[in-house]
Amino acid sequence: MKLSPDQTVFWKHGFIVINATIVWTWIIMLALIITSQVITRKLKTNIQISRWQCILEMLVTGIIKQIKDVGLQQPKKYIGFLGTLFLFILTSNICILFPFYLPPTSSLSTTAALAISVFIAVPFYGILEGGLLAYLKTYVQPSFIMLPFNIISELSRTLALAVRLFGNIMSGTVIVSILLSITPFIFPVVMSALGMLTGVVQAYIFSILAAVYITAATTKSGKPENISITTKK
């Protein structure tokens, strides 16, 4: 039994491997981009809009609201990263209802890639907001003794992000696979539904955690007014 889509290799040339993870990711990317392009091509600025536009607007404004609720005062700056994280994980998790589909998020390589992206994005936004020095200062706060703990915290939470998502999705896929071989009727469907629910929850958790980490980095190293606004929240 294949536990990860990484194991399904379509093409290999030395270090370069084209496996199911990459292919399914491309397919999801294509679907997302084509859908967006098709809907946003006919965007209207009137009061009356199409249903699809309405759904897209609800989705985008929902993401923006969530980011704002976490504490980021300029959500439009972060929606490219955080929104894409959420949409990609959500789509790849929901698509488990298609037969022969293996979610890329059930591959540790994908979740590790996403976690590394967050790991890079956090200092990136932190430095962008308050400068390198201010960001580095956050590692020695509240005192210098906390430096090793802060570094460990950074690494461990990245690892936790990757493993949490991978574990949840992979386990769901594995359970459905096992159930299919034992009781091919009813139960796998229920488990698939459960897996979808878990997938949505995991997508939300992953993006919210990334947002929280970015908020923590930008708020500590950011401008005083940002801090005051955040603390008010």
Binding site: D6, F15, I16, V17, N19, T21, I22, T25, W26, M29, L32, I33, S36, Q37, T40, L56, V60, K76, I79, G80, F81, G83, T84, L85, L87, F88, P104, S107, L108, S109, T110, A112, A113, L114, I116, S117
Partner: peptide, 25 residues
Amino acid sequence: INWFTVIAQIVNFLVLAWLLKRFLY
């Protein structure tokens, strides 16, 4: 962990983020 896949997924993710920003957000 397949490190090529990891790199490819990071690139994929960044491309997707850029495209979605361009075509959606």
